[in-house]
Design a protein around this nucleic acid. Structure first.
Lengths: 237, 237
DNA sequence: AAAGCCCGTTGACCCAGATCAATCTTGACG
DNA sequence: CGTCAAGATTGATCTGGGTCAACGGGCTTT
């Protein structure tokens, strides 16, 4: 579902009290810069399932995810899909060198982004090396995650993939909402399958197996980690 | 094989006539900067199979590959290996945010690198945003390649993996030594298998199958692309 | 509340690619 | 030139996970 999103009236939205202020790209900006920066972005909302941008689209904007979860994916011509990542609040999307996006991005549930037009954003960076350094830092971190994911896709069994996914997803949620054994899974089984290079049936079966072994409890919208140690042992790394 | 490499006497080595001058990180530097930069790096040689740096090692240096090919890989505790990339001359290695390398790097055949101590290099970048921009550009390009590779690992068949690998490898060699239907493969079958998430037997069988179909010709140290169109069709993307 | 749909689960079966096991090729070295 | 070791190929067999198919449970719609 292609969506252009809904721009929110800017009343009352200031970078200085933005929820992702401290861990997004903008954490590198001082208060004065932040006031200038404020005029570059506009808040836009997307509803569940809407596509924020598509692979091969000419890049006209960058996005800072403020609220919600997004799936980032690539499609093969015959429809096979590989999800290359899930984005959480604070993630910065859209950087590329070809001038075109190299993956598509959909909202999973309602999403709010801070959208920056490419050119003014590029100009703003120009003489702010600390912002560039911050962007570089995020790119390098993503690269490291991408390599970990290659190991998972190329060399791990279905059981290991699922276990590693649960732990890694929980870990990422920690920085958002603190530690908890309840792990919300807003994405569908199909999304998880396409992320792990499996089929939906294998994902379902593996969850059931983990539940039968008492390692997790499948609840609506997520799972409970009953035995984190056992899941860690399964993830084996 | 862990190796510390052999430093080459600096006589007669100048950045200005470096082979990778135009496409490595240093392409962003002007002649004056280049002269200063020259003192930061030292040329080091590694012989076939030597390890230049290992995953989890504390990062003390960055590397600019000048000559040869390297395999970049991660190991699971039980020895399973995933090659996350092959490095060619001009590639810049070692960036990370944790202070530790996040993959290992071996020489495939003899290799020459330009090695930079981390701290002086970091200081040199400090007030040279154009160099930082160049590094960022390289990171973003690698990220895009990493995502393509995830699709390959997660969603493609063995035949497609091999075909895509041959075409992609040939494409990369174009910028090094021009177009040719002779594709040198300096890495072993095991390396190819670990890059594609397959076993050595499947790689061997798939090569043989391609040869029987007249698409390629297996020669010592590489293959001849007899029917590029057919291989492209197999790669299906 | 009945109908329909979407999503997830479960079972039966199958196959691409892994595993196991020779055998062959090539190059290094006495 | 013969010996050895390392890599590559090939064949036989097995299996993890894919495919196909049925079913169920929780929504929305009317």
């Amino acid at each position: 579902m292609k969506g252009s999103g809904v721009t929110i009236e800017p009343n009352g939205h200031f970078c200085s009290d933005c929820a992702v202020r401290d861990f997004a790209v903008c954490s590198s900006l001082d208060p004065a810069e932040l006031r200038e920066f404020e005029h570059l972005g506009r808040r836009v909302q997307f509803s569940s399932g809407e596509t924020v941008f598509s692979e091969e689209d000419i890049t006209t904007s960058f996005y800072n995810l403020l609220e919600g979860v997004m799936r980032l994916y690539k499609l093969l011509p015959d429809g096979r899909r590989q999800i290359v990542g899930f984005a959480l609040p604070g993630d910065f999307l859209g950087m590329n060198i070809s001038g075109r996006h190299n993956f598509s991005a959909d909202a999973i549930g309602a999403v709010t982004v801070c959208q920056f037009a490419k050119l003014p954003f590029g100009r703003f960076i120009e003489d702010r090396p600390h912002l560039l350094r911050r962007i570089n830092e995020l790119a390098i971190r993503e690269l490291s995650q991408a390599r970990d994911h290659m190991v998972l896709l190329g060399r791990r069994s279905a059981d290991e993939k699922i276990a590693a996914f649960l732990l890694c997803w929980r870990e990422r949620l920690v920085s958002q909402k603190g530690v908890s054994d309840m792990v919300p899974l807003p994405m569908s089984r199909q999304d998880i399958a396409d992320y792990l290079g499996l089929t939906i049936e294998t994902v379902s079966r593996t969850f059931t197996k983990l539940e039968r072994h008492g390692a997790i409890d499948i609840v609506h919208g997520g799972i409970n980690l009953l035995d984190p140690a056992r899941v860690e042992a399964l993830a084996a790394a």
